[in-house]
């Protein structure tokens, strides 16, 4: 949270620091909109600070100061970030931006006159992957795994923890540490700042930050010889093709996808064909309320001939 406080203007920081410590530790989002009260969200409640009777109103000059603090007084360095609409700050936290969009040649060039900030606090949860690991490996090899869950069910958190465990190696299961490649299109898994991951991943992790998934998968295979590839939120046709390609290249895939359950994602042609062709050996279904998951073994016999298994 320290990093988050550093980008908040002093007035707001003071107000938020006055909240009980337990609440501070549970903060998931801080929303700041010009001429509107500041809103804080934990995963159980949303409230206005300091209280709803006399809320603190975030004004234009606060917004300018906030942008200054976010960019170290150097908005000129945020070209890419303003195009994507969010800034990743150290600690892996993300600040979403909205305001007046500037276009150039029919493309979004950036956001000017920023009117809304949404600070999303990133929290690492160590050990969420522990209970799954036994079922995700087979005789010392990791299985191709698909993580299925609706938004906010903890897919990315789980994926991050799995990546960490793989790169460290799991002694109790006699699985060696493997080289892990992460294709982090939306800078969510690793929360990289200038290419350097802000989350702890052990030693053997390489990250392609804000790289399109399909290209990233191929780039990684060509350049970094990974043993395991981790990719978030697959869905487009190119992603599917790239995953097939990667599996053929002998790389283990860990991917996540939006959806309620296995049946649900089978309605999507790309994912369905990947599952039908037997590219995935395990699926984890995550439940949004309990944040617990069920591991399903996908039928290996369905694998089409011609797919080389090692």
């Amino acid at each position: 949270m320290k990093e988050v406080f550093q980008v908040l203007p002093e007035k707001i920081r003071k107000i938020i620091l006055k909240l009980p410590e337990k609440t501070i530790n549970e903060i998931e989002e801080i929303r700041l909109r010009v001429n509107r009260p500041v809103e804080v969200r934990t995963h159980t409640a949303t409230f206005v600070v300091p209280n709803s009777a006399t809320p603190f109103i975030f004004i234009e000059s606060d917004s300018a100061l906030m942008l200054s603090l976010l960019s170290q007084h150097s908005v000129y360095r945020l070209e890419e970030e303003l195009k994507r609409g969010y800034i990743t700050i150290s600690g892996g936290h993300r600040v979403g931006l909205a305001g007046r969009v500037v276009m150039e040649k029919g493309e979004v060039k950036g956001i000017r006159d920023i009117s809304s900030f949404n600070i999303r606090v990133a929290r690492q949860k160590y050990g969420v992957a522990k209970s799954y690991l036994t079922q995700l490996q087979q005789r010392g090899n990791w299985c191709h795994t698909l993580i299925i869950g609706p938004p906010k069910s903890g897919k990315t958190t789980l994926l991050r923890d799995i990546a960490r465990e793989i790169s460290k190696g799991v002694g109790s299961l006699k699985v060696e540490a493997k080289n892990v490649g992460i294709i982090d299109e939306r800078s969510e898994i690793a929360g990289s700042v200038k290419g350097i991951p802000q989350h702890d991943f052990g030693v053997k992790v390489d990250i392609l930050d804000s790289c399109p998934k399909a290209e990233g998968l191929m780039m990684m295979i060509r350049s970094m010889s990974p043993e395991v590839l981790v990719v978030d939120e697959i869905g487009r046709k190119e992603d599917g093709d790239a995953i097939m390609e990667a599996v053929h290249a002998g790389v283990t895939i860990f991917a996540s996808v939006h959806g309620d359950c296995l049946e649900d994602v089978k309605a999507r042609p790309t994912i369905a064909s990947l599952i039908e062709l037997g590219f995935f050996q395990r699926a984890i279904e995550l439940n949004v309320h309990s944040k617990r998951g069920i591991v399903k073994k996908l039928d290996l016999k369905k694998r089409v001939s011609g797919v080389i298994r090692t």
């Binding site: 300018a64 942008l67 200054s68 960019s71 007084h73 150097s74 908005v75 000129y76 360095r77 945020l78 070209e79 303003l82 060039k109 950036g110 000017r112």
Partner: peptide, 11 residues
């Protein structure tokens, strides 16, 4: 406008 503009305008 120091530090508040994008690259091109700053330049």
């Amino acid at each position: 406008t120091l530090g508040e503009q994008d690259l091109e305008n700053q330049r």
